[in-house]
Design a protein around this nucleic acid. Structure first.
Length: 785
DNA sequence: GTAGGGTTAG
């Protein structure tokens, strides 16, 4: 029959049509329908490209052509068989007028109840996404076979309509292993793990596929150990794993962090001769990538007999993971075929590694090449725009998200909120949040973080109180928000609330709380946290070790700081910055400089922040030549352009050493806008050295730059005082009073239990003030005696 | 000659 069909024009047209477009249709079917597609990719869209073919087909296959087909078909042995075969052809391709015409024809000729016809109609409408028609066919015909029942259940389960699937499951006359497996898989994909386990245990027939479905279901729900238990039970039941089982179990080992078990699985894979299988090799490359073994990953890739887009994508990620984006990009350029995951990997990795512009460039290249960005691409591109604080890029990406219909996706939405807040567009962010049809915790978290970022702590607090469900990220958002906005007491208070609520803190939480401790006179709290972190066994992790180093250094306990720093088995540039800066701030400038020299021996490249610390250290020690040496090497050796802060440090260095004229010259010559602090440093040194002329000029500049800051007036008054020009001192003081400026008083404090007691000079506000002064008097008189 | 399980990013 197929030979004869091939002779007809119908088949020939269908085939030529199919050859060019089948690949594209398949790609289209795998992604959700996109009403804006033709608008968006007008140059490369399949609809436009193939529309002439489609038109000619429509002409040939229109309802009017039916009598011709009728005549051809009549020649065949079974008329119904021919119709079924034609319907199957239609099912494999894009919606054609022929399909519904044939459907109508089978109804008229009473063939629609024929099982082979109704089954084909079912698959055809289902493939086309004409779900109402499919359901009508299923509802109207009876006597469907087990295949069709399973087909329908799978279709409902795939769409997440578990009620409909369960309804059919309960009604169907018989079930087989496929029926049960569909139910297991469907429930797992919707996160209904408990129900899924029930179906699995009730299933009287189990094959490798049922076990594998169960395993991958657990994996999809992050239950890696449960997946491994299933694998164990399967081996015990005497069944042999196949290549799909192996990819799933390797994934479970990665998720559970069971790399030793992973190695044994590799042994089993080799014994059962699956080591040449494409997907198995792909998952092995991932295993070695997560184990950090680049060489082994590369070897598996090199020895593969065939490679697909997944193999190449994993390989490029092997290099991206270790930060070698140049090699990753080289592989990306070299790979024979790319898909949206390959693009999304590159975009995400560029964005994560701080190369925001490159991430956005890739995003636009992806669009240019006609690929359809997925949710992950949008998140990364938006996060890149947010990091650049570039509203133009951000809103452009937003437009693309709207065109594709992703703007209401909760993940894209939370990235959008984040982007608008980072660009300072609070109203847009809030409006976007308000209009979301559904919000998840991530969206709420983005709002909280956004308000904190813009210093609107009260708004963030309000949202945090009212959100329907909190996770560890929500707690971290509000806690780090308080820390960023210097509400350090609130940090400690909220951290206690978090523990009380039963929420387990993460490294991020500890980092914020340690930061608060570093800025509060509360070494006790910090030590307390240190012991908590040690108990959790995470004290030597880079992130924690760095936060602890910083906390101890800022609290003045430089010995503990050094101890933590030296213990860390792995240090990154931030760890080194914390220690170098800690030493410099605590007056150990020489030690700070020698640690910097030590760091240069490692693979760590000096950053802006580290060099700033070193310049400060030099300035505090009066090491003018050394300071200039480092300042010069910034540009020449490390290719870093000095920023305002570096220049201020250099001004301070010169001024403190008494080179006031050179310092003033440096300010006037710097290629960046000098900060107020540069003038303040100069003015301060002028009062030390009693240089009225330069001092007055500096004071004028300082007051111009910072009208509402009293520092300029105070420093000028100090300068006049050092020159005994008391009249001028009084003049400045009066001027300050007239402009309403007040000098912030210096204060000291002590902590008794959980309370801080703050004292200003001649302070009588403390409730036990009279007792305190009494004791003070007693002590002084005793000392005098 | 049709239905069920998988690998890559975040």
């Amino acid at each position: 029959m197929h030979e004869e069909l091939r002779a007809t024009g119908t088949k020939r047209v269908l085939r030529s049509f199919c050859r060019d477009s089948l690949k594209r249709w398949r790609e289209d079917r795998s992604s959700p329908p996109n009403p804006f597609r033709s608008l968006h990719f007008s140059s490369s869209t399949s609809t436009t490209k193939f529309s002439p073919v489609l038109k000619s087909l429509k002409k040939k296959l229109a309802v009017g052509a039916l009598p011709a087909i009728h005549r051809t078909a009549k020649a065949f042995k079974s008329y119904a068989e021919t119709c079924a075969s034609l319907l199957r052809q239609c099912a494999d391709h894009h919606p054609l007028a022929l399909g519904p015409a044939l459907h109508a024809h089978t109804i008229k000729s009473g063939m629609s109840a024929d099982r082979s016809i109704s089954t084909k109609l079912l698959t055809m409408y289902s493939n086309w996404g004409w779900l109402d028609d499919r359901d009508r066919v299923f509802g109207e015909a009876d006597g469907f076979d087990l295949f069709s029942w399973n087909y329908m259940i799978a279709a409902y389960a795939r769409r997440g309509d578990l009620d409909a699937a369960r309804h059919l499951f309960d009604r169907m006359p018989e079930r087989n292993v496929v029926t049960w497996t569909v139910m297991v898989d469907g429930h797992m994909k919707c996160g209904k793990v408990r129900e899924s386990i029930e179906y699995f245990e009730r299933n009287p027939f189990r094959t490798v596929i049922s076990w594998t479905a169960m395993m991958s279901g657990f994996v999809q729900n992050g239950l890696y150990f449960e997946a491994l238990v299933i694998f164990h039970r399967m081996l015990e039941s005497g069944l042999m794993p196949n290549e799909v089982t192996f990819t799933s179990v390797v994934r479970s080992c990665i998720g559970a962090g069971e790399f030793d078990l992973g190695r044994s699985i590799v042994g089993l894979i080799i014994k059962t001769n699956f080591e040449r299988n494409l997907s198995v090799c792909n998952s092995l490359i991932t295993l070695y990538l997560r184990m950090g073994d680049v060489d082994l990953a590369r070897r598996v890739f090199d020895e593969m007999e065939e490679r697909d887009v997944v193999s190449w994508t994993v390989l490029l990620d092997v290099y991206a993971e270790i930060g070698d984006l140049v090699e990753a990009h080289r592989i990306f350029d070299e790979m024979p075929e790319r898909n949206e995951v390959s693009w999304s990997t590159m975009i995400a990795r560029y964005s994560q590694n701080g190369e925001a512009l490159e991430a956005l460039r890739m995003f636009y290249h992806m669009l240019r090449d006609g690929y359809r960005p997925n949710v992950s691409c949008f998140s990364s591109a938006l996060s890149a725009s947010a990091n650049l604080e570039n509203l133009l890029f951000g809103s452009n990406v937003h437009c693309h998200a709207i065109k594709i219909g992703f703007d209401s996706d909760v993940y894209v939405a939370s990235s959008l909120i984040d982007m608008y807040f980072k660009c300072g567009k609070l109203i847009d962010g809030r409006q976007l949040f308000g209009l979301l049809p559904e919000k998840n915790t991530a969206c709420w978290n983005s709002m909280i973080a956004g308000f904190c970022y813009n210093g609107k702590v009260e708004e963030a607090e309000e949202l945090f109180k009212n959100m329907p469900a909190k996770n560890v990220v929500s707690w971290n958002a509000i806690i780090s928000g308080y820390a960023q906005n210097e509400h350090y007491n609130k940090v400690l208070q909220t951290f206690d609330d978090m523990l009380m609520s039963g929420q387990m803190p993460s490294q991020m939480t500890f980092s914020s709380v340690l930061h608060a401790c570093a800025n509060l006179p509360s070494l006790e709290k910090g030590k307390n946290l240190h012991s908590k972190i040690a108990k959790l066994g995470i004290q030597d992790e880079v992130f924690m070790g760095t936060a602890l180093t910083d906390m101890y250094a800022k609290s003045g306990d430089i010995e503990s700081s050094k101890k933590v720093f030296c213990r860390m088995p792995e240090k990154n540039e931030i760890s080194w910055t914390a220690m170098i800066q800690g030493l410099a701030d605590n007056g150990f400038a020489e030690e700070s400089i020698s640690l910097f020299e030590e760091m240069k021996e490692t693979a760590i490249v000096p950053t802006e922040a580290i060099i700033l610390s070193i310049l400060c250290a030099c300035s505090h020690c009066g090491l003018v030549d050394k300071g200039f040496h480092y300042f010069e090497s910034m540009k020449k050796v490390y290719g870093i352009m000095p920023k305002e802060k570096h220049y201020t440090c250099m001004v301070d260095l010169l001024a403190r050493a008494g080179h006031l004229r050179e310092a003033e010259e440096l300010i006037s010559k710097m290629p960046v806008q000098p900060e107020a602090n540069s003038w303040a440093a100069l003015l301060s040194a002028c009062s030390t050295y009693g240089d009225e002329e330069i001092g007055e000029r500096a004071a004028k500049k300082l007051c111009e730059l910072e009208k509402s800051n009293s520092a300029g007036y105070v420093l000028l008054a100090n300068l006049y005082a050092s020159c005994r020009r008391w009249k001028d001192v009084a003049k400045v003081r009066t001027l300050m009073k007239r402009t309403g400026l007040k000098k912030g008083g210096g204060c000291s404090w002590i902590q008794i239990r959980d309370q801080f007691h703050t004292f200003f000079s001649w302070d009588v506000k403390h409730q036990k003030s009279s007792e305190i002064y009494g004791v003070l008097q007693l002590l002084t008189s005793e000392m005098m005696a």
